[in-house]
Amino acid sequence: MASELHNEMTRCARILGSEGVAALASSCVMVLGLGGVGSSCVEALARGGVGKFILVDHDVVDITNINRQAIAFHSTIGRKKIDVMRQMVLDINPQAQVEVVDSFVLAENLDALLDEHAVKADFVVDAIDTISTKLAIAAAAQERDINLISAMGGGNKLHPEYLRVADIYDTVNCRMCRIMRKECRKRGISHLRVLYSCEEAAAATARPGTERGERSGLGTMPYFPPIMGQMIAGYVIRSIAGVESREDVLARRK
């Protein structure tokens, strides 16, 4: 089976080298949330040779997920996302180790979740939507020295060419990032690596009868969350394999 895995990774090895491929095979990545961003991220990580996964989600596949989630098909509607994702990973790499956690990621249960599982992970991907929980994850990651990358909002965005990996304090034109910057300062979070879009998105509209602040008016293009997930996977793969990213080069030149 080792030779089969080598054949599957041949094209990656041409770029990453044998040491990079070996580092990925022995690595563990924890992904919080298996929606449009998280599911595509996990798929790309599996195809990139990551050997161990910790996948956290409590949701089931819904028909509205079909336009953007890698695990969403009519045949998977109603199934637990963690189960569908685990099956996909093992279909890509039968040698992978996949641990699933059937749980919502909440500020209230985050410490226990990270204490039990994140200690085994080389990288943690935050692919959830709730800002309060994202802030709790960022604070906990800083306290525990966890390698973290966090996905910002992709709602009402059209142009993936505006996606960037940056520190939260270097972000522009993103409502979620603006809130996160303010709250990170309040909490003493000095650094947070994020994927965000600097595109100026159209304002969200609310359905009649809903609260003004409700994000019910946010639309999502089918290609946008998957591209975000792929880009995060690329950043994680380059980091684990020891390949310098363009973002790191640019940051060093500042």
Rank of each mutant, 00 (worst) to 15 (best):
201 A>K: 13
116 E>C: 10
136 A>D: 07
26 S>W: 00
126 D>Q: 09
110 L>K: 10
90 L>T: 12
14 R>E: 11
138 A>G: 03
44 A>Q: 15
129 D>G: 10
195 L>W: 11
9 M>F: 15
80 K>M: 12
87 Q>Y: 02
240 I>H: 09
138 A>I: 06
64 T>A: 11
25 A>F: 00
27 S>V: 05
232 I>Q: 02
45 L>I: 03
118 A>G: 07
113 L>F: 04
118 A>T: 08
151 A>R: 09
182 K>Q: 14
67 N>A: 06
165 V>G: 05
26 S>D: 15
164 R>F: 10
26 S>I: 00
129 D>T: 06
242 G>R: 06
150 S>I: 08
113 L>Q: 08
39 S>G: 09
80 K>R: 15
111 D>S: 10
159 H>I: 05
180 M>I: 15
117 H>Q: 02
32 L>F: 14
74 H>C: 08
195 L>P: 07
90 L>I: 08
225 P>M: 11
12 C>I: 11
86 R>H: 04
5 L>T: 00
42 V>Q: 05
249 V>T: 13
244 E>K: 15
55 L>S: 01
90 L>D: 06
126 D>Y: 07
97 Q>N: 05
120 K>R: 15
137 I>N: 01
54 I>S: 05
203 A>M: 13
139 A>W: 03
82 I>G: 03
86 R>K: 15
103 S>Y: 02
30 M>N: 07
12 C>Y: 13
148 L>C: 06
213 G>R: 03
227 I>G: 04
93 N>Q: 12
155 G>Y: 07
243 V>A: 09
251 A>V: 02
133 T>Y: 03
71 I>Q: 02
18 S>H: 13
236 V>M: 03
97 Q>E: 14
130 T>C: 02
151 A>N: 04
85 M>Q: 14
147 N>L: 00
152 M>L: 15
183 E>Y: 13
238 R>Y: 06
62 D>P: 00
19 E>D: 15
165 V>Y: 09
67 N>V: 05
1 M>L: 10
70 A>I: 01
123 F>R: 02
208 P>C: 04
149 I>T: 05
188 G>P: 04
197 S>V: 13
108 E>C: 03
169 Y>V: 05
222 P>Q: 03
200 E>D: 10
237 I>D: 01
84 V>D: 07
131 I>W: 01
125 V>L: 11
216 S>D: 12
48 G>W: 12
232 I>P: 03
132 S>C: 00
34 L>H: 06
49 G>K: 11
233 A>K: 02
49 G>C: 08
128 I>H: 00
193 R>D: 12
176 M>P: 04
244 E>H: 04
33 G>S: 10
19 E>K: 14
66 I>Q: 11
85 M>G: 01
214 E>W: 05
244 E>Q: 15
209 G>F: 00
92 I>M: 04
61 V>G: 02
117 H>N: 13
103 S>A: 14
246 R>M: 14
193 R>F: 02
129 D>Q: 09
208 P>Q: 07
80 K>I: 00
91 D>A: 13
203 A>N: 10
52 K>A: 12
228 M>G: 03
201 A>R: 13
89 V>R: 08
124 V>N: 08
129 D>N: 10
22 A>H: 13
190 S>T: 14
37 V>S: 03
119 V>K: 13
211 E>V: 04
36 G>H: 11
25 A>T: 07
91 D>K: 12
185 R>W: 04
48 G>Y: 12
81 K>Q: 01
224 F>G: 00
123 F>D: 05
153 G>W: 03
